[in-house]
Amino acid sequence: MLIKSCMLSFWKRIDPIYFACSRLTYIVDSNQNRTVLRARLTKYKGATVVLSDGTVLQKNDVLLKIHLHNVKLLKELSTVTNDIKRAVFIYHIIKQAMPSLAMYIQSHPSNEKVKGVIGITNLSRGAERLGFEKAPLKNALYRFFKQVTLLPINLFTGTKKINPVYLFMSKRKLLTIYASEESIKP
């Protein structure tokens, strides 16, 4: 427990530096509260992917890359002790942030260029229920790099399996599922 506490303290200190260097933007809800998601535009560099709604993602397409705000997530997870409850908590906190992500894309100046959302995670349980589609990381060197960089979050969340995957969702699907939810929230 002391090791986790020290690591979280260290992580809290380096996160603002990472945030500043990564060009991320906080995704905020309709009340301007920060969600657990942060994002930035990126050009897709992977193999061509055809999503279930027919959206084709090709090299250099503009996607919104999402990142979990791990420090915020871990702080909120600190009171959850059971692995199953942790997984359910993570699922619900991400689901709660998705309408704000849809609102962010709708209001983004480059909205017309964005074809979808991409993320890389090993916390992919329940991703399909949120509307994401999974794809493996094919490049072995990149997969190893992501395994190493995701190791700290695994230690905190109790995730034993370190097998990162791409998560994709088309902009059309995101807006279909989540855009109307934000507009009806109080």
Rank of each mutant, 00 (worst) to 15 (best):
C6E: 09
L8S: 09
R13N: 10
R13S: 10
R13W: 02
I14P: 08
R23D: 15
V28C: 05
Q32R: 04
T35K: 00
V36F: 01
V36G: 13
A39T: 00
K43S: 14
G46Q: 09
V49M: 07
S52E: 06
D61A: 05
L63R: 02
K65R: 11
I66Q: 04
H67N: 14
N70V: 01
V71N: 07
E76M: 04
E76D: 13
T81H: 14
T81S: 14
K85F: 04
K85G: 02
I90E: 13
H92S: 10
K95A: 14
P99Y: 01
S100Q: 02
I105A: 02
H108Q: 04
S110G: 07
N111P: 06
K113L: 09
G116F: 03
V117F: 04
N122M: 15
R125E: 11
R129L: 15
E133L: 04
L137M: 15
K138V: 11
N139M: 12
K146Y: 06
P152S: 08
N154L: 08
T157V: 00
G158M: 11
T159N: 13
K161S: 10
I162Y: 07
N163F: 02
P164K: 06
P164N: 08
M169R: 01
M169L: 06
L174C: 09
I177F: 12
A179S: 15
S180V: 00
E181S: 13
E182H: 11
E182M: 07
I184K: 03
P186T: 11
P186A: 10
